[in-house]
């Protein structure tokens, strides 16, 4: 029973991680690639963390006392991923726009207009 839950979590996590890197190949410019590379890998990694936390808690419940620390440490890794990934993506997007990369096939660009006013 417990193995089935872990299999489902691992399956979702691995599927979204692979979709993220596939999107990195398929999308046309930096910003859309960030969509794929940030959202999908964050979501996938969180599900992989859930699988490992479930495994650690289950082993701990079965009597392997030191496996509780696997669950706690994985929880901290999950918090680190969840806090740092969107901020890093934001930094890359901003740097890309300031270094002059235009969004491909864009229908509207308000930031471009605002930077034009300042010059």
């Amino acid at each position: 029973m417990m193995w089935e839950i872990i299999y489902i979590f691992l399956g979702i996590g691995v599927a979204f991680n692979m979709l993220g890197s596939l999107g990195l190949i398929r999308f046309p410019d930096v910003y859309t690639r960030l969509h794929a590379g940030t959202k999908c890998t964050t979501f996938g990694s969180i599900f992989i963390c859930f699988a490992i936390i479930a495994y650690g808690l289950w082993r701990w419940y079965d009597g392997e006392k030191e496996m509780i620390s696997l669950a706690i440490h994985t929880f901290f890794a999950m918090i680190a991923i969840l806090l740092t990934n969107p901020t890093g993506a934001h930094a890359i997007a901003r740097a890309a726009h300031r270094s002059g990369v235009k969004p491909a096939r864009a229908v509207v660009d308000d930031l471009e207009a605002k930077e034009g006013e300042n010059d």
Binding site: R26, F27, Y31, H35, H97, P103, R105, A106, D110
Partner: peptide, 24 residues
Amino acid sequence: EMAKANFDVAYRVLTGRIKPGIVK
């Protein structure tokens, strides 16, 4: 919302149907 977002991005990865823009 995050789960919904991921299925949305997955759909766009697989079909390539996008219409991007930067809004304020």
